[in-house]
Write a protein that binds this DNA or RNA. Structure first.
Length: 216
DNA sequence: GACCAGGCACATC
DNA sequence: GATGTGCATGGT
């Protein structure tokens, strides 16, 4: 079976098992971008608490976050963990967003994906996964998001080598699948779901929907 | 109490 | 280039 067909088979299997995941869980594109930074190496439940604080203090907007004192910001996002470093990262992101794009999503969307990705990566605190999450889930750019689960699931299935890089995994998906926004969005969410449920550090493969594809 | 979570930057060799 | 480390809360 070709790799493209294999990846599509996996996708269909996951979708059938888990159904649509409705990602990203954010009310607005801006909230999605903020969430992408807050969720770095952090459970989403904790991120929700931090976002709730930002809403409660009415500061979840580009302008308010641009103006807010960084120590106050840190205290509001405390539940998300790493709150000092994340406050700094959020500030760096917001500074770029405000000073280059007036804090306007529409302006961001007019820029081509590759250029935008480079700009995002140049911000201290925005790495590969955060950049791609923002591109895909906030800006509707068809780019494949790779994360720890993607690596864990697909290396366990021997579809990617154990020694690999973010870019190589991303390219594996993008060059073997049709560049489809809706599917890229859903596929990553499905991978997270199967990873969380069946492919943690201790593999729980016996009930995994992808069990039949596991190499012997 | 240990372990983990939808990373990232930076120090050191 | 590769390996190690700090960052931190809250759920299981």
């Amino acid at each position: 079976m070709g790799k493209g067909k294999t990846l599509l088979t996996y996708y269909k299997k996951l979708y059938k098992r888990f159904g649509p995941r409705h990602w990203w869980p954010g009310e607005t594109p801006f909230e999605v971008m903020v969430g992408a930074i807050l969720t770095q190496n952090t459970n989403w439940v904790n991120v929700e608490k931090a976002i709730a604080n930002l809403k409660a203090y009415n500061v979840l907007s580009p302008k308010r976050l641009y103006e807010i004192d960084i120590s106050i910001l840190a205290s509001l996002i405390r539940p998300a963990g790493y709150f000092n470093i994340k406050a700094k990262r959020l500030k760096a992101f917001i500074k770029w967003f405000m000073e280059s794009y007036d804090g306007k999503i529409e302006k961001l969307k007019t820029v081509d994906t590759a250029t935008l990705r480079e700009q995002l990566l140049s911000i201290k605190g925005v790495g590969n996964e955060t950049a791609d999450s923002i591109l895909l889930y906030a800006l509707d750019k068809p780019t494949f998001v790779v994360d720890a689960y993607t690596y864990r699931v697909f290396s366990r299935h021997r579809l990617i080598p154990e020694e690999t890089t973010y870019e190589e995994i991303k390219d594996f998906f993008e060059s073997n699948l049709k560049r489809d926004l809706r599917m890229f969005n859903e596929y990553h969410a499905q991978i997270v779901e199967v990873g969380k449920t069946f492919c943690r550090t201790k593999p729980l493969c016996d009930k995994c929907p992808l069990k039949q594809f596991l190499p012997k």
